[in-house]
Write a protein that binds this DNA or RNA. Structure first.
Length: 215
DNA sequence: CGCCAGGGCCTCA
DNA sequence: TGAGGCCATGGC
């Protein structure tokens, strides 16, 4: 029965380092934040198209994002889906970033930073943790649908455990290390995409031996 | 064709 | 405070 670290090592051995988060333009921090919003319940391939549109129009900038109309912004991010909602969310986020510059956010501790981010309409728990971990590079474990699915099937968490509870489970069982958190989440996504799909492919799954296969 | 994807907000008990 | 409805495109 491997613990969280044992599972991490197995995934790392199988998939190798993931080097998340994929960044395509120069202003990587802002791009990561925008991507974190656009990827909400959306395949990353669609997010890439939307970010490609924004990048082509030099929109990866606080000033440009502030000046563009919401309708126009929505049309540019159309491939990522939910484009009306997401355009409004992005507007909220850049307004927040204007009032709370990155250099200021960088000084905050994770707890207050998280609380602050969650105050923005459009940033929920997973998006907040993604921004803290991948954009600001502070240790805050990201829990997503994949995380819950995999660790429920393995038998380490229960269906009724909420976001904060699952997050605590990981953070209390792992070294408080930004790179470990980053890599672990990336490896979880990789496992979910390749094996632990909604309809699981258990054969040759790296965690096959210590999985309870609950459904 | 139907299913699904790196959620979050709003509403209504 | 928790479940349910809603948002939407593109890949397979």
């Amino acid at each position: 029965m491997a613990g969280l670290t044992g599972i991490y090592n197995k995934l790392l051995a199988r998939f190798g380092e993931q080097f998340w988060w994929p960044v395509t333009t120069g202003n990587s921090t802002l791009e990561i934040i925008i991507g974190a919003v656009l990827t909400q319940n959306t395949a990353w391939s669609n997010v890439e198209k939307a970010i490609g549109n924004l990048s082509r129009e030099k929109m990866i900038s606080i000033e440009r994002m502030r000046s563009i109309g919401e309708k126009k912004l929505a049309s540019m991010i159309k491939p990522s889906g939910y484009y009306n909602q997401k355009a409004r969310k992005l507007k909220n986020v850049v307004e927040y970033l204007e009032n709370n510059p990155l250099r200021q956010l960088a000084k905050m501790d994770v707890k207050q930073l998280r609380k602050s981010l969650l105050g923005v309409n459009g940033i929920g728990p997973e998006t907040a943790d993604s921004i803290i971990l991948y954009a600001l590079e502070k240790p805050s474990f990201v829990v997503d649908m994949y995380t819950k699915r995999i660790f429920f099937r393995i038998g380490l968490i229960d269906k009724n455990q909420g976001y904060e509870e699952v997050k605590q489970f990981f953070e209390s069982g792992l070294p408080k290390d930004v790179n470990v958190y980053k890599e672990y989440h990336a490896l979880i996504v990789e496992l979910a995409k390749n094996f632990c799909k909604k309809k699981p492919l258990c054969e040759s799954c790296p965690l096959e031996k210590n999985c309870e296969k609950r459904m």
